[in-house]
Design a protein around this nucleic acid. Structure first.
Lengths: 364, 364
DNA sequence: AACGTTACCGGAAACGTTTTCATAAGTATT
DNA sequence: AATACTTATGAAAACGTTTCCGGTAACGTT
C-alpha cells in the first residue's frame, strides 16, 4: 500500500497509463530533494540554492505537476478565492463590473466565486458573513445591496477584507471595518439635473427607485431635490414616480407620469434601463423625444448610447471601479487592515435625448 | 500549545473573547462523541442514533460550527466548485445564462467559479483543461468559445464532467467526452430568414460574424444561405458584411452595407447587439425602419424589445439553457459519465422592425 | 448458552501541503 | 583551532476533514 521509492510510471508518448496525480512527494523523490525544498521552490522562497531550484523546476515541468490547491488552502487556512456578492437585480452595469473584477482577480492568481443574492429584502451583510465563513474566502467584494445595522465586531473578527462597491450602508458606527468604492450619487445626480435645468427646463419629472429598495440609487433622488432647490424650482411630488431598475418598470412609471397630464418637459431617471423604458413609453404615445420631452438617465451602460435618440446619462467609470475594488482588497490584505473609502468621479454625457427649450437657463 | 480537554471559551453574550474557529474535534468533545460520529452527522449518514445526531446538531448550532471546506475538499479530492468559463466577449446573453447557472449551482450547494477567457484566438479547450486541473473543479461549464482538435484522451482522463453551452466544436472524433446544450443555430436562422422572405423581401442583407470567430453564430450564416436557397433567391456576397458581436461593429457593418447602394429591403443580423447598432446606423441616415428597411436580430436580449422600433429576433431560452447545463453536469457526475447532447427550441419573435413589403410571399 | 446479525460508534490513517525546528556544511571571526 | 554565524536542507508536525476498520452492545436464533 505504501508508495515505494521507485520512479513513477511515466506519461510516455502514446502510453496508456497516466499517473493520475503527481504530488509534492513524487516531485521531491524524483528530483532527489526533500519535500520542504520543493515547497520552498513552489512558494518562491529565497533560501534555495540556484541549482537545486532549477533541478526541481525542471522535474515539475517534466511531470506536469500542479500543486493541490485544497491542501494548500487547508494549510494556509484561506482559499485563494475571492467572493463577489451581487445583489439580485439584473443590471448590465453590474455585469460589467463583475467582469472587470474577475480579470483583476485572475491577474493576482486568485479565483472569483460569484454569488447572486436574489432574496430581495435581506440585509446583505448577513449573507456576506455567511459566505466568507463557509467558503473560507480570502476577501469579499459586495456589489450593490444594503448593509444595515452591521455587527462590526463580527465582521472585524472575521479578519477578512471586505470591499463594498455601490453598496448602501446605513449604520452610524465609527468603526472602520470595510473599504468602499463608490461614486457620489447625490452630487452626480444634482449635476445631471442642473444640466437639465440649464437647458431651460423647469418642470422636470423624476423616475426614482421604489423606497423600499435601499440601494445607493436612492441618493439620486436627493440630488434631484437639491438641484431643484438650488435653482429655486419648487419640488412637486406629483412629478415623481418609482420603478425598480428594469426596462419594464421604467416604461410603466413613465406611463403613469404621462397619464397625469403634467406640463413636464424633461424627466430624470435613476437608471439607464428605466430611462430606455421611459423613453419608449413616451415615444409610443407619439411624444417626440427630445423635441417635446427630454430624458436623462444614469449609469452609462452602452445600450443607452445606441438607443434612438441616444440617452443622455451620467457615466460611471465601470471598469475602474471594479479594478479599484480588487486593488483595495489586496492592499488591505497586505497592509493589515487599513481600509479606504474611494469616491470616483462621474461624467455627464450630453446626448440626443436632452434638448434646450425656450426658457432661460438657471443662473447657477 | 496543545489544546487541553477542557471546554471552550464560550462566545458569551457581550463576551470579548471569541474562539476563532471551532472544529470538528471540538464538536466531538463537546457533544461527548467521537470525531467520526460528528462527521457522519455532517454528511447525513444513516448509521447514527437519532438522539446522538440531535445532540451533535444542537452542539453544532450552539457553537456556530461551520465545517472547514478546504479540509473537506482535500479529503474528497474535489472542490465542490463548478467552473464556468466564458468566452471573452461582452454579451448580455451570456451574463444572463451565467446568472441562471449560478442560481442552479447554489441550489445544489456548490459554488461557481467564474472565469473569462479574454484571449481572443485561443482554442478554449486548453484553457478549460488547465482550469479543471488547477482549481480541482467538480465540473466545468463552457459558455461560447471554440473547441477544436480536442485531446479526448486527456479530457477523459480528467474524469471531470464538462458541459459545453453555446460552444463551437470542430472535431470529428466519435468519443463522447462531454455534454452539450445548444440551439440549432442553422435551423433557427433559416426559419428567421424565411419569415423575412414570407414578408415579401427578396434582397436580404446579412451581418454575420467575422470568419475568424469560430462561434456557433457562424451557423446562422448557414441558415441564411439555406433559406435563400430554398426560396430560389440567389446568394449575393455583396449583401454580406461582418462584425464581432458589439453594437459598434454592427453599426459599422450596416454603414458599409448602405454605402454599397444595394436595393436591399431587409437585413438579417447575427446578434441582437449588432442588430441594434445596425438599426441605428440606418436610421441615422434617414432610412426608416421598418418602412424602408426591415431588420431582424438573433438572441432575444431584453433590450431589443425596448428599442424603437422593437427588433424582431430569434429568442433563445436563456434561463432554461443555463439550468439545463447544470442539471446535466450533476447527472453526469452521479450517473458516471453518461453524456447528453441537448438542443433547445427557439422562437421567432415578430416585432416592429420587420414589415411586409409588396412582393409576393415565398411559396415555401 | 453460544452464535450470528445488526446498529452504532471510536481510533487512526490518510489527503497534500506549509512551516517550524534541527542539523550539517560552509564561511568568517576570533 | 575553536567559535559563531550563515546558508541549505530534510524530518516531522501540523491543518481539519473523511473513511476504513474494527469493536461493543443489543437482539434474535438456534
Amino acid at each position: 500500500m505504501k508508495t515505494f521509492p521507485v520512479t513513477l510510471p511515466e506519461t510516455e508518448e502514446g502510453g496508456e497509463t497516466m499517473k493520475q496525480n503527481v504530488n509534492i512527494k513524487d516531485i521531491a523523490r524524483l528530483s532527489g530533494v526533500g519535500i520542504s525544498t520543493v515547497s520552498r521552490v513552489l512558494n518562491d522562497h529565497t533560501d534555495v540554492k540556484k541549482e537545486t531550484r532549477e533541478k526541481v523546476l525542471q522535474v515539475i515541468k517534466e511531470y506536469n505537476y500542479i500543486p493541490n490547491n485544497s491542501a494548500r488552502n487547508l494549510k494556509r487556512s484561506v482559499s485563494k478565492n475571492i467572493g463577489v456578492l451581487v445583489k439580485g437585480i439584473y443590471n448590465p452595469f453590474f455585469s460589467k463590473v463583475v467582469r472587470a473584477i474577475e480579470e483583476e482577480i485572475a491577474r493576482h492568481d486568485y479565483s472569483m466565486i460569484l454569488h447572486y443574492n436574489s432574496k430581495d429584502a435581506t440585509n446583505d451583510s448577513e449573507v456576506a458573513i455567511e459566505l466568507i465563513k463557509e467558503k473560507k474566502l480570502t476577501g469579499l467584494i459586495c456589489l450593490g445591496g444594503d448593509f444595515e445595522d452591521i455587527d462590526t465586531k463580527q465582521i472585524a473578527a472575521l479578519e477578512t477584507p471586505m470591499v463594498l462597491c455601490s453598496t448602501m450602508v446605513r449604520y452610524s458606527g465609527d468603526e472602520n471595518v470595510f473599504s468602499s468604492v463608490n461614486i457620489d450619487d447625490a452630487i452626480a445626480a444634482e449635476l445631471a439635473v442642473k444640466e437639465i435645468i440649464c437647458c431651460g427646463h423647469r418642470r422636470i419629472g423624476m423616475i426614482r427607485l421604489r423606497e423600499d429598495d435601499f440601494s445607493v440609487c436612492q441618493y439620486r433622488m436627493t440630488g434631484y431635490k437639491r438641484a431643484l432647490d438650488s435653482c429655486d424650482i419648487p419640488y412637486d411630488p406629483e412629478l415623481v414616480e418609482a420603478g425598480d431598475y428594469t426596462f419594464e418598470t421604467g416604461y410603466k412609471a413613465m406611463q403613469r407620469l404621462l397619464d397625469k397630464q403634467l406640463d413636464m418637459t424633461a424627466v430624470f431617471v435613476s437608471t439607464d434601463l428605466m430611462a430606455v423604458g421611459a423613453a419608449r413609453a413616451a415615444m409610443e404615445r407619439g411624444i417626440k423625444v427630445p423635441e417635446e420631452l427630454s430624458i436623462v438617465g444614469f449609469d452609462g451602460i452602452e445600450f443607452a448610447e445606441y438607443f434612438m435618440p441616444s440617452i443622455s446619462t451620467v457615466m460611471q467609470p465601470v471598469e475602474e471601479m471594479g479594478i479599484m475594488s480588487v486593488e483595495i482588497l489586496f492592499d488591505v490584505l497586505n497592509n493589515d487592515g487599513v481600509h479606504r473609502q474611494i469616491l470616483f468621479d462621474t461624467k455627464f454625457l450630453h446626448r440626443e435625448s436632452l434638448r434646450r427649450v425656450g426658457g432661460e437657463a438657471c443662473p447657477k
